[in-house]
C-alpha cells in the first residue's frame, strides 16, 4: 500500500497524543495549574495535529462532517466520532486541573477509555480489510494500542511502566512483522483464484490493461526493496522501543527522568514509530495486485 505521509503522520501523532491524554485521564500523573496546562496542551496539540494531517489525506475535506454519520458500519466513521468524544470529554477534566486545581477523575477515566477506543478504531480501519492480509489480523489492534500506551507512558516520563510498555511494543513489532510476512501466502489468494482460471492451468499476466500507471497501482501496488525493509525494521525497533526503554531504565530508581534524556527518548520513539508506520503501509500487499501479476 502507498505509504502516504499524511496517514503516517496522522497515526503516529494522534496515537501519541491520545496515549498521553489517556494517561492523564487515568490519573497516572495529576498535574495542576500551569503544569496541567502544558500536559493537556501537549496531548491536544499532538492529537489535533494528527487529525489535521489526516484531513490532508481527504480530497474533499470540506465535507468531513459527513464522516460522523456512518458509525454503525464504518470504522473510519467510528474513529471520527470517538476522537471527538475523547477530546470533548477530557476538556472539563483538563479545565478543572488547570484553573481550579480540581481534576475530575471519573470523567477522566471515561475520556481515557474513549481515547483508547479511538486508537482501536484507527487500527480496525486497517485490520478489517480482508483485501490486505498483512493487516487483517488481531496483532494490528494490539500493536496500535501498545504504541499508544508506550508513547503516553514515555511522554509522562514514567520510569516503571514505560519501559515495560516499550518492551511489549518491541515484541508486538516483531510479532507483526513475523506474522505479517506469512499472511499473504496463508490467505490463499493467487492469480489463479483472482481470475478463476486456476482449473485450466497456471496464470501469468501477458499484457496489463493499460500502458502507463494508474490510481490502483499507485495506491495499492507499492513495492519496497527487501533490503531497505530490513534496515528500516531494525531502525524502527531500535529507535521506537529499545533505545527509549534503555534510557528510562538507566535513570536511577526513584528519580525523575532528566529533561534532556526525556527529550531524547521521545524524539527517538517518534522517529522509530514513523519508520514503523512507513513500513506498516509500504509492506502491506493488496490482493488487487494479483490482477497485475504482483506477488
Amino acid at each position: 500500500m502507498h505509504p502516504a505521509p499524511s496517514l503516517i503522520a496522522f497515526s503516529v501523532l494522534s496515537g501519541l497524543g491520545l496515549g498521553l491524554l489517556a494517561m492523564l485521564g487515568l490519573g497516572l500523573i495529576v498535574p495542576t495549574g500551569w503544569a496541567a496546562f502544558l500536559w493537556f496542551g501537549l496531548g491536544y496539540a499532538l492529537t489535533l495535529c494528527g487529525l489535521g494531517a489526516s484531513a490532508l489525506h481527504l480530497r474533499h475535506p470540506e465535507r468531513a462532517l459527513k464522516a460522523f454519520t456512518q458509525w454503525r458500519t464504518s470504522w473510519l466513521s467510528r474513529e471520527a466520532v470517538l476522537a471527538l468524544a475523547a477530546l470533548l470529554l477530557i476538556a472539563p477534566h483538563a479545565a478543572g486541573s488547570v484553573f481550579l486545581a480540581r481534576p475530575m477523575p471519573a470523567l477522566g477515566l471515561v475520556a481515557a477509555l474513549m481515547a483508547l477506543l479511538t486508537v482501536l478504531a484507527t487500527a480496525m480501519i486497517y485490520a478489517q480489510l480482508r483485501t490486505v492480509p498483512r493487516w487483517h489480523h488481531w496483532s494490528v489492534p494490539v500493536l496500535f494500542l501498545l504504541a499508544a500506551f508506550a508513547g503516553g507512558l514515555l511522554l509522562i516520563g514514567s520510569t516503571t511502566l514505560a519501559p515495560l510498555a516499550l518492551a511489549l511494543l518491541a515484541v508486538a513489532l516483531l510479532a507483526h512483522w513475523m506474522i505479517g510476512d506469512q499472511r499473504f501466502a496463508g490467505a490463499g489468494h493467487t492469480g489463479e483464484t483472482a481470475t478463476g482460471l486456476g482449473p485450466l492451468g497456471q496464470v501469468r499476466q501477458l499484457e496489463p490493461p493499460h500502458t502507463g500507471t494508474n490510481y490502483l497501482l499507485r495506491e495499492m501496488a507499492h513495492v519496497v526493496a527487501r533490503r531497505h525493509a530490513i534496515k528500516l525494521r531494525v531502525l524502527a525497533l531500535v529507535c521506537a522501543a529499545v533505545l527509549p526503554m534503555l534510557l528510562l531504565v538507566l535513570t536511577p530508581v526513584g528519580q525523575p527522568v532528566s529533561p534532556p534524556v526525556w527529550a531524547l527518548a521521545v524524539a527517538l520513539h517518534v522517529l522509530g514509530m514513523l519508520a514503523a508506520r512507513w513500513l506498516f503501509f509500504a509492506e502491506a500487499e493488496h490482493v488487487m495486485g494479483l490482477y497485475y501479476g504482483r506477488h
Binding site: 475535506p61 495506491e219 488487487m288
Partner: peptide, 24 residues
C-alpha cells in the same frame, strides 16, 4: 457526499474503484 478518503477502493478486492484525479 464523497470526501475522497479512498477507503472503499482499499476494501474492494478487485480494483474496481478508482479515485478521479481531477474531481477527487
Amino acid at each position: 457526499d464523497c470526501i475522497g478518503c479512498g477507503l472503499c477502493a482499499w476494501a474492494c478486492p478487485y480494483g474496481a474503484r478508482e479515485m478521479d484525479a481531477v474531481a477527487g
